[in-house]
Amino acid sequence: MDTFLRQSIEFLPILAQGLRLTVIVTIGSLALSTALGLVWALMRVSGNRWLAGFAKSVVNVIRGIPIIVQLFYIYFVLPDFGISLTALQAAIIGLGVAYSAYQSENFRAGIEAIDRGQLEAAQSIGMGWWLTMRRVILPQAFKIVLPPYGNIMIMMLKDSSQASTITVAELALQGKLIASSTFQNTTVFTLVAALYLCMSLPLIWIVGRLEQRFGRR
């Protein structure tokens, strides 16, 4: 126990650097996936056959390719086409795009759960499609979408470790680097696991609360 504490004090500052990148990757890709997911979802429900078909195809292609391959593609293949990104940029874009597919399905389910009468009431007072979405449909869909959105957040936090495969020294990779140079596997990976839990358990708790609050209605 004594050695564990001593080693922890030594390793934690290094792991904190990784933690910082984990948070940046998670928040960055969360923002991107939310924005993109909303765009796909709105295209799906736009009523325009071409837009809906396009969004559906994009979502299926994204869902059909493993995240790790998408990351490799963005980081290793795009430079061949003259688009060079830093590892961090590639990680945020890769995870953001990959997760936009799941976000989109969640948003679409939320939007389609709203009673058709709401759409008709909005139309009957002269609202156009966009105004109806903004003022009537999306505010109501928000409550439905929130609990699953929290779950996606937790999944993203954990999947941010996949950024390590394209050399982003986030928490998991930082841990692996320390472990392979000090051979203190137990201490290092216990700390890494504990740090992930410190972030995900509060999120899980918040999602639980959200489900209680909005789930029943």
Binding site: A121, Q123, I125, G126, M127
Partner: peptide, 29 residues
């Protein structure tokens, strides 16, 4: 849009906006 602002509609199932108060429902349009 012009037609709909001239001819309003009242529905069988009311279709009020549940996330807005009575007054907010009325002034939305």
């Amino acid at each position: 849009t012009a037609v709909r602002t001239q001819v309003s509609m009242v529905f069988q199932r009311f279709n009020l906006f549940p996330h807005r108060t009575a007054l907010e429902n009325v002034v939305e349009g």
